[in-house]
């Protein structure tokens, strides 16, 4: 017992703030929302237990739920790779040698600063309108553009473009990761005459793996939970024709617009299961491609 204590005490001391926060502040609301997912709760009157009713309705009768899933999965499949490749590519360009790197880094991060403000919503609607700047540029090279944002077939892509444009956060994390790779490794490789792309696959990728892994997991989680951009651009409705009905937008409307907090909680817990599954897969496979310096031997 005493040995158990001696072995664990330092770790638990460091973990203490988190433990307090989790058990005293976070856990209660999380369990409450799990409970609410089994109730009918309009936020004014007391919640009423209805068993699996919400989940049953979700899978058997709710067409918009399936639509929301479809929109969200499409978005995740497009936005996560697009954003990560963009971020990694730019980070590598910036990592080496340029004296003006600080300036570029700041410029590339700026769009992420604008976040999902109302300004972005207005701007995006103007940029991608039928007579907007994007189409004017396309017209110069002879392409007749669509009315991107109001056409249900293309509106989702404008949100993907927005996600790509705001690649600042993963870029910064990649940069921090690249900075952690010892320069002498590259110098040694240079002396050995190793070509650049092999330096990339032999040195950069393996040593950056933990950071790539982090960005992949986080971007996936975040993309499944994407809310603000779709919400503001579609004026909170998921329009046109539900093509921007992201899962969390649907969830928010069910909860706060239509007073179905119980149902929204059920939606949330199902999303949690989806995200957790993907994250678990990522963690499981990471054994094969992510190696940490300290766990090498």
């Amino acid at each position: 017992m005493r040995r158990f204590f001696a072995r664990n005490a330092p770790a638990y001391v460091f973990l203490l703030p988190w433990l307090i926060g989790f058990f005293l502040l976070a856990l209660g609301p999380i369990l409450a929302s799990l409970y609410l997912s089994f109730t009918r709760y309009d936020m004014v009157s007391a919640p009423r237990w209805i068993g699996w009713g919400n989940y049953e309705y979700m899978f058997t009768r709710d067409r918009r739920f399936w639509k929301a899933l479809q929109v969200t999965f499409t978005y995740v499949a497009l936005a996560v790779p697009a954003r990560l490749i963009m971020a990694l590519g730019v980070a590598m360009l910036l990592d080496k040698g340029l004296r003006t790197i600080g300036l570029y880094r700041a410029i590339f991060y700026l769009p992420s600063l604008l976040g999902s403000s109302i300004a972005i919503a207005i701007l995006w609607r103007q940029l991608f309108a039928a007579d907007g700047v994007v189409n004017q540029v396309l017209a110069m090279v002879g392409i007749q553009g669509a009315s991107w944002i109001t056409d249900p077939d293309t509106s989702l892509f404008t949100i993907v473009v927005l996600a790509m444009w705001q690649f600042g956060s993963p870029m910064l994390i990649f940069l921090a990761g690249l900075r952690g790779i010892p320069r002498d490794l590259y110098e040694a490789a240079e002396i050995d005459g190793t070509p650049r792309w092999r330096q990339f696959t032999r040195i950069t990728l393996p040593l950056l793996a933990p950071v790539i892994f982090f960005n992949l997991v986080l971007q996936t989680i975040d993309s499944f939970k994407t809310f603000s951009s779709a919400f503001i651009i579609s004026n909170g409705t998921g329009a046109p024709a539900d093509s921007l009905l992201f899962y969390t937008v649907y969830l928010f409307n069910e909860a706060f617009k239509f007073f179905r907090m119980g149902y929204a909680s059920a939606l949330a817990w199902f999303l949690l299961v989806i995200i957790a599954t993907f994250t678990a897969i990522a963690f499981f496979t990471s054994k094969y491609w992510v190696h940490y310096e300290n766990e090498r031997d």
Binding site: A26, P29, I30, L251, F256, A268, A276
Partner: peptide, 17 residues
């Protein structure tokens, strides 16, 4: 557990919180 707190949609814990 820590990772789980990342995954839960914020809006549903808003009211209990």
């Amino acid at each position: 557990l820590m990772m789980m707190t990342l995954m839960i949609p914020y809006h549903v814990v808003l009211i209990p919180q």
